[in-house]
Structures are given as C-alpha cells and as structure tokens.
Write a protein that binds this DNA or RNA. Structure first.
Lengths: 349, 349
DNA sequence: AACTTTCAGGAAAACGATTGCCTTGACGCT
DNA sequence: AGCGTCAAGGCAATCGTTTTCCTGAAAGTT
C-alpha cells in the first residue's frame, strides 16, 4: 500500500483525491509513491464507500448495427472524458434479455443508463421508478417525462430540399422506405411541406433494388423531374444506377440526395452522393452529456431533436441548370403546406 | 435487507449462494424474501470480498467499425451467458488512450481483457506481466505466448478457389487490395497455391472503384478468364459492375467470389455475390470462451486460426460452363505450388 | 506565559457482502 | 442421566477505500 511511503491510508486517500488539508510536500510524496508502485485505487472498494461507481450501462435494444455504432462511439467518448466506463449490453430486441441486463446493471450500481436502438416508433420506457437516471438516444420513450435525444429528421429533409432548390432544382421527386415507417413519414411530410413535390411520394423498401425500380417508375410515368430526394443512401444509389442505365445523367439531368450519409454508400455511388447526416455521434455525445448532468442532479426531461447536416457531393453539383421561369436562384423556399390540388399522379401509379 | 425475513445476513448470503448447511425451508424463505424486496446483491461489495468482479474489458484498438461489431456481439454473447459484463473501450488507434483504458480496467479489477482491432499486421502486446489474462481477437499479438484468435484467411481463399473449380471454372483471376496488406498477401498466396491463376494478381485498393478499374484491365489485357476471385466484397461488386457494363454476363461468362460476406454488399450486388465469411462472431465467441477458460485457471497460448465458410449465391451459379479439356467436373484441386513459368502477363501490365 | 486558533495527519467507523468459526439445541447412544 | 455428534444458523473478521472526528503541535494573541 502506498501508505508505506510515509503516511496512513486515510491521509494517502486524501492526498490522491485532493481532499483535506496537508503540506504540498506530503501530497507530492504520496503521489510519487503511488505511481512508483503502480498503485491504482480499487474501484469496488471506492464505490462501496462513496455510492458512486463511475460506470454507466448502455443497452442497445435491437442488435448493435450500423446506426448504433456512431451512437456508441459518441457516448463512449463523452463518458470516457468524464472518467466513466461503459457497460455494453446487446439486448437483441428481446424483452427478456433487456430486463435481465437491466437487473445486472442495477446490481452493478451503475450511475446511469443509456438506451439506444432502432425502432419505427417510440418505445415503452425500459423500467419504471428506476433508482438511476436513464437517457434514450436515437430512439425515444413514450413517457414524455423521460429524456430522449433524437435526430430532427424533418430538419434533415428540409435541408435537403433547400439544397436542391439552392442548386437550381424545382421538380423534386421523393423515393423512400415503407410508408408505415416513422422516418419515412416524417421525412416525406417535411419535404412536401417545404416544396411541392413533382410527384406523389414513392414508398417502398430501404434497398438499392427498390431505388432502381423506383427510378424506372419515375421515368416510365412520364414525370417531369430534375431531382430525387431519397429516403436513404441505399435507395439513392439504386436510383442513381437506374437513371444511369436509362441514359440520364446525374447530376446534369437529375440531382440526387440521400439520407444517412453512410460512407460506404455515398462514396461508392456514381457520382458520389450528396446526403443528409443525422450526426449520430453527436446524438450519442449529447445523450451522454445529459446523462452526466442527470447523475449530477440536473435531470432533463422530454425529447430533444438535434439538427441534421447536409453534406454536398457530386450528385447535386450546381451550375448545370438555369433557374426556371425567373424564379430567384436562391429564393426563399416556401413554408406553406403543399398545394395538393396541383398534383397530377400519372396513370401507372 | 433480506435478513429482515428471518435470518442473519450471513445466513442470507449462504442461502442465496447455495453455501453452508441449512433447512431447505429456510433457504426458500430467504429467496422469496429476496425477490419480494427486489433485492440484488451489490456487485462492488461482493467483488471486494471475493476478488472476482465478473467483469471483462474489451479494448478495440482501432475505432469500432464494421469488423469489430460481429466480434463484439459474439464476445458479449459468450460472456453474457457466463454472467459477465463487458466494459467497452474504444482506443481509436491511439496508444495513449489504449494505456489509459488499460489502467482503468485494471483499477476496476476486471477478470480479463479482450483486445480486438483491425490491423495490417500483428500488434505489440498491450502490456507486459498483466495481472489478468488477455485474449486477442481478430488481431494477433506478436508475442507467441499470448493467446490470439484469428480467421484462417488462407483457408477462406482456398475454399473460394475450390468452389470455383467445383462449379466448373478453370481460368481464375484475382483482384485484391494493397500488396502491403497482410490479408491481401495471405489470400493471394493461398489462392495461387491452390490453383494456377489465369493472370498475375491485381493489387489495388479495397474499393469498388478499384474493382471496376481492374475489370477493365482484365478485359483490356486480353486475359482469358472465366472467374474472378476478389479480395473483398467491395472490389467484387466493382468488378461485377465493370463486367456488366462491358457486356459480360455474371455468372454465365464470369463467376465472381467476394470476401467478408458483408450483407450490404453481397445482397446489393447484381447478381448477388458468393462470398467467403470469416465468421467474426464465432471468433469473438471463441475468444471470449478462451478468456473464460483462462480466468478459470486454464490459459491457452498461441494463435488459433478459425476456418472460414463459403456462402454461395448467384454470382457463381453453376451449370453454365462445361468442364474443359476433359478435366473431371469435381476434380481434386492440386495442392502443389503454382507453375510460375506458365504465366504470361500481357504487355499492358 | 498562558490561552486560543490553525493546520497536518492519524484513528477508526463506515460501505455491503462473504466466510470461517462458534454456539445452540436436538437427537442418539450407552 | 450423561455425554457425544451433528445440523442450523449466528457472529464477527475481512476486503480496500473514504470520511468524520480527533489529537498534537506549531503559531498567533494579549
């Protein structure tokens, strides 16, 4: 024990933790002795005494996937800076596992819990009257008193539309995922509210295959469009391929915007894909910071939506298309509701 | 405290842990009282006494990425079954962070540590004379005494070649990543040793763009090939596109095998891509099991290579190509060294 | 010079479980 | 009846810290 370097254990503790009054000389002596012996405080003993473990649990409700990772990294980053360690729990969408993990985390006396996961809708709270604060990241809790941090997907869709408008596009089509999927709905609604779409929203799957198919449908339907806003990057890539194979040039004839800014997709796409980034890492970081605040006695409540970011690439390269009908090049996008009456869906739909 | 249900804390402890002698009736009474009160043992207090924390640390040396996730899941799975919790540490390829995490993990008295990460080569041991067992997963340690679990990439390449041979292909080209990359070397060498390649190995990047380019090179070089074995799935997808745009049909004219079996790539590829799966989840699980064994006093040493698995899909659909020159349809692949003298690289290379 | 204040550092009681040892009472044996 | 044996369960030490309170000694006050 480091106390062998001159003082009692009590004093050594104070020295290392900056408590109590003592000569600077003594404090230094203890510290030197400590790292000479490679002394590391026993976290178990400490937490037994203090009640704090400097530990948080992170439960991913569905399996750790593409979306969870940036969240994990962001949260781990913010927590690591606060000297906290993270317990990783993968509940695989299984409520039994979830509750099992919850119990072990509570047994380990974590200071707080972050719940993440991909869902089409908000989820039920993981537990009621828990003795530790909980923050939901990416997913939100149905209890409005719970603290959730989610991406502002409507904001993302608006940014995408504005970017298309700014680069001179006016006839925007929208191809996205399943209609019952919350994200698809929100994004489509926000896009339509920002600018009247050139065609009814095409709902399908979150896949490249659907993107290719949808491109074909747009072309076959005789739609007049100079841009396609896609529900995610995979769809966008599929649309890009479909258009290219039909002889349309991206971005000259049609501009393309994806959603997710998934490096694998946006870089491999030809041309490289402009996309909306939900800043998942930032969401993870924010969630962790809110959790830290809650642990320190300043709990936050309700849902926080974080803005998205548009990352422009070649698929929306500007300068090709002249503004039509004298509309201002960087004119303010309208914010009114879409004039549904003007829509003219083609027969084939 | 559960002792309020009739007995002393000592007895309660024995009851819940199945120690000591006592009437079954008493034991039951304690257990009922415990979960009536929602009693969970305080892990800190327990570990302070027993010296075990039932906790392991998992350090990813590079940032958590596509390869780490299955490893994480596999390890977490095996450990969770053993009632152990996992501390996640993302060292981001920064030796300082790595050592910092190592210290905190040791302070938390983890029972063991798993080190994972993607590297081109084996890595230096994370620490010397550590008080807890360490297992390296996916990556290997330069110290032969350390325990590492890695994929048998040569095995994977051999399986791919055999599959191509089994489906009637004989003129196999190989397109892969950077020559200095260990995986590229190993896979290429194993493939070449299994069957004489139709052309010198094409080294490049791990990208689709390189795959497309390489397809063009093969065609322009006048190489006679009926199959391409690719260093990873992205390259394979690029090759598929390149071939398709040049009018070659996959799999009729050319069969294609990828490496990694990355769902996003193999499914989106046209046609869907046959690929070699390294079973990363299995590697994570094995590593965790070896760690558990080491914790229980049966440490393993040295490097374990786990076999790969070939997942056939449309890109190697058989039945199109008749065996040439009377070679047996399912003939034994030769295992001798390639006859380098027979190679005739075209001028353009 | 006697008294108060201040400061450095020690002693010991927690924290919550585990566990070896001990006590108690019931029972059986002679 | 007295003694030994054994099972059931209580007692208390222990793990390694933190933290409160306390003791001396040195310094300052009048």
């Amino acid at each position: 024990m480091a106390a062998l370097a001159g003082v009692s254990t009590g004093t050594a503790s104070k020295a290392l933790n900056g408590r109590g009054a003592m000569r600077p000389e003594t404090r230094l002596r203890v510290q030197q002795a400590a790292d000479q012996l490679g002394f590391v405080v026993n976290a178990a003993a400490r937490s037994l005494q203090t009640g704090r473990t400097y530990t948080v649990g992170m439960i991913t409700t569905d399996t750790i996937g593409r979306f969870s990772i940036p969240l994990l990294i962001g949260a781990e980053d913010a927590l690591g800076a606060g000297q906290m360690s993270v317990f990783l729990c993968d509940a695989r969408d299984d409520p039994i596992r979830e509750q099992y993990y919850l119990r072990t985390l509570l047994g380990r006396k974590v200071d707080g819990i972050i719940v993440t996961g991909r869902r089409t809708q908000a989820r039920a709270p993981i537990g009621a009257d828990l003795p530790v604060p909980v923050v939901y990241a990416f997913i939100s809790s149905t209890d409005p008193q719970d603290c959730s941090v989610v991406p502002d997907e409507a904001d993302g869709a608006r940014r995408a539309v504005r970017h298309l408008l700014d680069t001179g596009r006016r006839r925007i089509a929208h191809v996205t995922g399943p209609e019952h999927h919350h994200s698809a709905q929100v994004r489509a609604a926000a896009a339509a509210a920002e600018w009247e779409l050139a065609a009814p929203v095409l709902y399908g799957e979150w896949t490249e295959a659907w993107g290719r198919q949808a491109a074909g449908m747009l072309l076959a339907g005789g739609i007049d469009f100079d841009a396609v806003l896609c529900g995610n990057d995979q769809i966008a890539r599929g649309v890009a391929e479909g258009l290219r194979e039909a002889g349309r040039d991206v971005p000259r004839d049609v501009a393309l915007v994806g959603f997710d800014n998934w490096d694998v997709m946006v870089d491999a796409c030809r041309p490289s894909l402009t996309s909306v980034d939900m800043d998942l890492e930032g969401i993870g970081r924010t969630a962790a910071e809110l959790l830290l605040a809650a642990i320190n006695g300043a709990p936050a409540h309700g849902q926080r939506a974080r803005p998205c970011r548009l990352v422009p690439r070649e698929s929306t390269a500007a300068g090709f298309v002249a503004p039509r009908n004298g509309e201002p090049r960087n004119g303010e996008p309208r914010n009114s509701e879409p004039r549904n009456g003007e829509r003219q869906p083609p027969e084939t739909w």
